[in-house]
Design a binder for these strands. Structure first.
Lengths: 362, 362
DNA sequence: GATGGTTGTGTTAGCGCTATCATAACGGAA
DNA sequence: TTCCGTTATGATAGCGCTAACACAACCATC
């Protein structure tokens, strides 16, 4: 039987200890308590100790709502990601919290479900909280998002893509070049009819760029080009398996597929196992993201490694710098990518004459 | 060259449009604008329209910081999870946002890294923001966490476990019974020497309960009991593979392992594939959580399905109910679990005499 | 035509903090 | 001595909004 449950009920927030009470107990004024907390070096040591004691005794927890309103600094950063479920974005969020938390900033998180309209609503809801900064995913946004952020005067970082004209700041990599590099890599390994399974492209500039990169590489390499070699599939193992089935049935001579993310690719890899398709000799499979699983599948998954954690950490740092007035001169940070070749594609590049085009270094 | 970049720089938040300005433009008082936004049905339709027009014209975005301070309602819910990386908790967060967002509430997210001390710091940082509610993971907390929340008067929901004496409210399931049921399930399928790979137990009541459930079942079933049959492994595919290797080398006669989460189990399953261990005949593997991957591995992974999304959704609902004054009489909600048997364990239960004990229904 | 309820709007007074300026105390330089 | 700079603290006035009450206008009732 919970014995204290009677006193546990919420009493409303108004009953909390106020700064005035602490001040009285410490024999100082409210502003001195405020200073002891926010700028301790501007308070005499003896006073500081008295204040600390009073704080401990009363269990005072400053009301940051009031503090933020008065000081016009909220110590809050808003983050909007397309989906929480994809652990890809979790790494970014982790990168942000690691940087922000120790500076006393907090994260407001929301997911847009890949909808620009929802994103716009979230942005205005976040702006209402007067955050110190806002981190968005991608570079395509609803018009009202841009209008709003243009005049809100909040530090904004877009992520996960590149753009010539970010709203404010940007940390990302080139999805187009990454996809392009992977397809050229596959071509270099001797694959000659390469399919594509993309994430749904609508409202998703990252997915669209990867499709563009694939198409450019296919064209440059003189590989078969056709819309029938491409599929769209929403993020799941199952959909990867289904897309693989659909493609190999439509194109029995296809010898490789580039998947726009590792989850689709891993689903396909497992489907190959069920169907007895020999990976990598008979069929090559490549993914994107280099999630943990990619290193563990049998065979391992060839993929594109992207700096997920780093994107979050750098985005957070950019915001902190802006707040501190340390205006960095690079508002656009390209963190690049890396091709990781594993067992799901052939090991040895096939030596052969190559068209006279720049080759993609991995 | 970004042409508007000169005007994009932050101007500080204070330059935003204030409610007074909207009121003047609409020819009403500030409070009427406030009402038009918060309780539109208490404002005459004509006035409401005038206010809306003024809002549109000025691009007014209410300052929720000020609103929360004045009204003593912050419309913010704090969530503390052990780690963002594990998509298990992502489902919970998704459940919460789905319920909260449409009520106009927002999520502040932080991760404790499985440390009760970090959790306590986060709790007091969150309390400083005067959230409407707080959702914690697990039921073991630092003393100061309990003290603080006891007097803070904030709606608190603990999740993912059961407890007789929650701080306030609770939504979870019995980790002990779930682990127990799984081990009995394995025993029922004819496995006779069952190992355990647990998550690190320190500061993690969920992991500790699962170990307890395993031990109870092993004892009840008369299976071999020994600390050497148990391992601890941090959440990763790799660690699952390593733990499997360690256990089968130490105990060549072991015929099944219960892993405390699917990622460890999947890592082990892949390791079996690499080692040529025949699953499920030679060796049974069971996991916990029923993540998407569990249905897709070859063979599929036997596991415990837990209501991850539902936990978040119900926790959010409890907080909303509390705020609305709808005090529900069940402050403790047990959402249960479900054994999902797939190909990583034998299909047909071995018929045999069973000790005269209650059997766990799955 | 006085009473009472309802509806719509305004006035006032904060919410709990911090920015800003003022002030006091002190030590050293001219 | 007077003056100035430095350091420590306080008094005052908001930050931008909403709670609480006041009040006016209107309709219905008896």
């Amino acid at each position: 039987m919970p014995k204290e449950s009677a006193t546990r009920r919420p009493r409303g927030l108004g009953t909390a200890v106020r700064i005035e009470e602490v001040a009285r107990l410490a024999g100082v004024s409210a502003i001195t308590v405020s200073r002891a907390l926010n700028t301790p070096d501007k308070v005499a040591e003896k006073t500081r100790e008295a204040v600390w004691e009073a704080i401990e005794k009363t269990g005072y927890i400053p009301n940051r709502l009031a503090g933020s309103l008065a000081s016009n600094r909220s110590h809050t950063i808003g983050v909007i990601i397309p989906t929480i479920i994809n652990s890809i974005f979790a790494d970014k969020v982790q990168g942000m919290t690691d940087v922000l938390l120790k500076e006393g900033y907090h994260l407001m998180l929301a997911n847009s479900g890949y909808s620009l309209e929802v994103e716009a609503d979230l942005v205005s809801a976040f702006v209402a909280q007067r955050p110190s900064g806002l981190v968005l995913t991608g570079v395509s946004h609803a018009d009202r998002t841009r209008t709003l952020l243009g005049r809100a005067g909040i530090a904004v970082v877009e992520t996960w893509s590149l753009s010539e004209e970010p709203i404010d700041m940007l940390v990302g990599f080139s999805n187009e070049k990454a996809a392009h590099a992977m397809v050229r890599h596959l071509h270099g390994l001797g694959y000659r009819k390469i399919g594509l399974v993309s994430a749904p492209v609508e409202h998703n500039d990252r997915a669209a760029s990867r499709v563009a990169g694939y198409r450019r590489a296919v064209r440059e390499c003189g590989l078969p080009e056709a819309r029938s070699l491409e599929r769209e599939a929403a993020f799941s193992f199952r959909n990867g398996a289904l897309a693989l089935a659909s493609l190999v049935e439509a194109h029995p001579d296809m010898d490789a597929i580039f998947f726009a993310n590792d989850i689709l690719a891993a689903g396909a890899l497992l489907e190959c196992q069920r169907r007895g398709i020999a990976v990598p000799d008979e069929f090559g499979i490549a993914g994107f993201d280099d999630v943990d699983l990619a290193a563990e599948t049998v065979p391992g998954l060839t993929t594109v490694r992207i700096p997920r954690y780093e994107i979050g950490a750098r985005a957070a740092q950019l915001i902190l710098d802006r707040i501190a007035g340390r205006e960095s001169n690079d508002r656009i940070i390209d963190l690049g990518f890396e091709i990781v070749s594993r067992g799901s594609t052939r090991a040895a590049p096939v030596v052969q004459p190559r068209p006279a085009l720049r080759r993609a270094d991995a």
